[in-house]
Design a protein around this nucleic acid. Sequence first.
RNA 1: CGCGGGGUAGAGCAGUCUGGUAGCUCGUCGGGCUCAUAACCCGAAGGUCAGGAGUUCAAAUCUCCUCCCCGCCA
Length: 428
Amino acid sequence: MVHRFTLTTPLYYVNDKPHIGSVYTTLAADAMARWHRLQGDQVCLITGCDEHGLKIQRSATAAGVPTKDYVDCMAGHFAALWQRIGISHDRFVRTSTPRHQQLVHEFYERVHGNGHIRPGQQRGWYCVACEEFKDGNSEDGGTPHCAIHDRPLEWRDEENLFFCLSHFQEPIAQLVAQESFIGPASRRREVQRFVEAGLRDFSISRVDLPWGIPVPRQPGHTFYVWFDALLGYVTALPDPDGPQDLATALTSGWPAQLHLIGKDILRFHAVYWPAMLMAADLPLPERVFGHGFLTREGRKMGKTLGNTLDPEALFAKVGVEPVRWYLLRDIQFGEDGDIQQKRFLDLVNNDLANTVGNLVNRTVSMSRRWFADCVPPRGENDDAPPPSPRRRSCDHDGPGKPVLCPTRSPGRCHGNPGPCRDRQRLFE
RNA sequence: CGCGGGGUAGAGCAGUCUGGUAGCUCGUCGGGCUCAUAACCCGAAGGUCAGGAGUUCAAAUCUCCUCCCCGCCA
């Protein structure tokens, strides 16, 4: 029986061009997708762009172009970059397309029909960058600032629609208690505690935000990020030339086996999203994995620090494969990881040039010199296990595993030079 | 305040659940070898396992306390 394996990257927010963090997630997802294809699984790797929201609308205005043109351009950057680095995605979904809107509406009607939508008043300080209301933040009378983005908040007082997350307190608590659902394990308890503290309904619409999907029967309302962007994972599945509805998605690879995301949006994927799916009577994804963040030479990357790593420039300078290797080999997948130039050089030289490259080189050279450019016939002792004098304690660094493979923890993957090292030893 | 994760060799980490010679990769140093790239192979140095107390024949591992880092709540 052929196993389906549907996995997703986040749908990247097209406020700006792709950054190294998006590249990291996507490279990892791609490696896993390729590994599962090698296992014979029927893989669907989904990536794409989240294209709505006030921040994008403002960025477009600032750039002096129509919003649609702006997101087309940005989405183009993402698509081009994925092509450049050989991402093997099966779907590239965009949330500003009619097909997506169609599915969002169907989903909303289901949830609404099941009684999990209510009106409510949303009043408070709003961070446009987070696209979130902040509470307990207006102490000294002045305009409060967002702690994350260090920018002034904006006062809002509006009627929104709310999703009744509180209806799902028990089932969600049970879900996140499952060991397999949230990875890495170190982040599971955090989510558990959050759920135990009590789930609160959250708003799913905004007013006065024309750049979004209109809410049925609610003139002036558009859907807020989660009831729009998360649905993209489902939108992506049906054949682009066929019918676009939930029933078709269910026969086309939903539910996903894995949502691969950054740790910052773990809660939305591990709590909000499954509750939304429950509300719509849809099956849940099997696993959500929140990987860590990348730093550079020990420091957070950011525009204010001026130490961002532009992927285009990086690839132009050192090539794609060294970056792929370094990120997947040296960063403990799940934990935060530091990108260091010296370390990068050492690893690429050691693993790719010296271990893998030189292995190929000397193999070819031996073949040429002693075996008339051929691979010699099998000898008597070829079934004997290769000598591996060094004991290995790392589970991801042993012989017999592919060079890029998932480790024992589902959803993880890791570069592994071990097999090539063993072959080198064998030649001695 | 509360909650979660972490502190093991110069660096990054595994080992902790199930106590029993402290391990992997990189870096450093020395030796060897050629089919091979300043390659490859072999070897060495380098760690009071954050600190303290306890349990035990035996603690990186179990219990309690303290200190320090990071994250969540924001």
